[in-house]
Design a protein around this nucleic acid. Sequence first.
DNA 1: CTAGGGTTAG
Length: 841
Amino acid sequence: MYAVPALAYTNSTISHSDQLKEGNFDVNSLELNEVGVLRVLTTMRDDPYLALSFLKRIEGNGASLPSVSAYAAVIRIVCSWSLDEKLSHLFVGIIRKGDEGRGFSVVDLLNAVGEAEEDEKLSFLLRSRVSSALVKAYAEVEMFDEAIDLFWGIEQLRWEADVGTYVVVVQALYRKGDSEGVEKFLGNLLSSETRKHCGFYMDFVEGLCVNEMSLVGYILLRPLRDANMLVDESGLATAYRKVVKGLCNEMKLEEAESALHDMEECGIDPDVSVYSAVIEGHRKNMSFSKALRFVNDKVAQQRKGIESPVILSSILQCWCQMGKFSEALDQVIAFRNLNITLDRFCYNVAFDALIKLGRVDEAIELFREMTCEGIDPDVVNYTTLIGGCCQQGRCEQAIDLIMEMESKGKPPDIVVYNVLAGGLARNAENAYGILKLMEDRGVKPTSVTHSMVIQGLIVAGKIEEAEALNQSLEEHKPGGHVAGIVKGYCEAGRLDEAFERFIRLDFPLPKNVYFTLFTSLCAAKDIDKAQKLVERMWELGVEPVKSMYGKLIGAWCRVSDVRKAIRFLKVLKGREIVPDLFTYTIMIKTCCRLNKLKLADALFRDMKKRGIKPDVVTYTVLAKNNPEEIDTDMKEYGVKPDVFYYTTVINTYYRLNNEKRAHATIQEMTRGGIVPDVATYTALINSYYRLNNGKKAYDLFREMKRRRVCPDVVTYTVLLNHDPKLDMKREMRDLGIKRDVHYYTVMIHHKCKTGEVEEAERIFQEMKESGVEPDGVSYRAIIAGCLRNGYVRDAKRLYQEMREKGIEPPPTEASKNVVLLQTKSNTETRVSRTKIQEALY
DNA sequence: CTAGGGTTAG
């Protein structure tokens, strides 16, 4: 017997609810048995919401559960109204109860639903729809096996599932990592017996793409195309575009480019949005050169659409993000010369580039030109310029521009005002005038405005003023704008003060403040404080951004303090925080670098134990020690080697004088279709030189050029090191290859060896003048050269210079033995060994 | 919030 309490029925407009309220059935006082329930449900045939609500009431009652027939009745009602989502939702509830909780099995329920319909056609539809909903429900509660099994059952019974169900099932297989299952599924979908119509496949591909399975979509495209199942060109084109864009969204850029290539081969023109997706994908990945190379390739192929302003602004952004502002501007000029129309987005990037180069006037000039070309500047264009003027200390121009906005009937918005107010403050100009102006114009300053002004004041060094403003605001909002103060100190490079201000606080700040301070501390190598910051965040109950843990450990590793890194790792363990792949890899790399091989191995085992799968990068780091063992392990783990990995392994074998294995590895790499790149060739060239086979080395150098592998500065360093007679100067200049510290050091070393110390010193000077910072090794080279040849005074001067810069030469075997001291003394002054020792160390 | 890998100099 059911005792049904009042129906809380609110959101229906259907007449049954009124009937109910008016007392045709007074459920309050009615005690219903199963037959009663079914009878009531029968009357609710036209009101699925009411039926659902009624069922819920019975479920909630708890005295006795609804019967299988009651569920079946409700399901039939909901189904007949095509409320597929409601149906799935209902099933989710049913599944979650479990067999015991509900007193019948799901199969019982399905049978009960199906049996009630006598009409064969209707029964078929009903069963199809219900099973589809159930599959989706299983997938939603992550009971993938059940979802998949049921689906195959449906297929066997020839019931028809909708597209959504197909998508859900692939997703289930995909998430289980069952690639065979996916394959079988797709095969089945394409087989002639179960072939679907074109619209189905289109919807299916789209469903895959929006559910982050574009790769599956891609795999499906070829057979669909070959079997001509997407009817016409336009269907295929649409499907291809969706797949490429989907792959870009999922950051699978290689696959996206490959799919793009396929579609072009089929003679389908990708549209601008497709190109744009690829380029933006690369840009988001910070692969700027890939983005630009892609554009160049397409331009070379004379692809249409690539000159659209949307693409152009991406290109410009790439240059700017690489810090190459002049190149961005060159690009703008090139576009304009080609009469390519730019839009206000492109211009905006150009303004930004000019400003970053300090060329504010030209930015404003370009802005005028843009206006003359009929492009109406928007508020973002103005914001860029106004912010830029402030950034370069040109406050009057910033104010002029905001006035111009007003006079042109483009009222500045809160963002522009904020940028201006903050900008004025950081230039020690009066920002309060702007706050007043804002009030007058009816734009109310917000806490962002105040924070920006406070931050600006701190940057300008007006600490007291900033504190006073903060105080006055604190009355309204406790804690006020310390965020601005801390960020201001960070920006001003006054990290100690930033840290002091932060550590006193007993309330949390917005996360971006922590992040700014944390990043600044790490960059300044004040890692102890960075760690304290993380610990303070924990104390305040603020969850640090996940990447902060890895960054902190990375920072410890960079200064070679493995002990502190390990200690922090233990703290993380105590908090049950599992370090990620990056963190483990950087730790292992550092241990290998410091020759703590046991520790490296322990970390490697620990990561595997804790469920972090090593990838090819991890194996590359480890391969430097025992390539043989690592290679086996890697292959057992199913990790595929790449060029980086092979280069390391080959080089390691050569270093260990194991030519046989080195050659075997080269062969394996070639067989695997992995093409050697500059680094691989350079390593090989170096190895041959070391084996005293200069001819083979040089042959390889020519081979790499023939194969269009462009040598880089490292390659030339190797050549110079082993064969100083070769004059590669011109070749390097033609290729635009700049010398770096390594290259200069080799030059210096060579000159020292031949006794041309003055020439060596000149080169050292030239290096500094060309903006290449000498490091410990280069200082040691020049100092040793001076000493060996008797230029003691120069040696001392250089030594002092090095120490003043806080540079220390890294330890080497040679430094331990102080080989230099054994060389003969000088002609200029007689110096004792101790003095030389003093001078050097 | 852009964190991890290969080749070179002592």
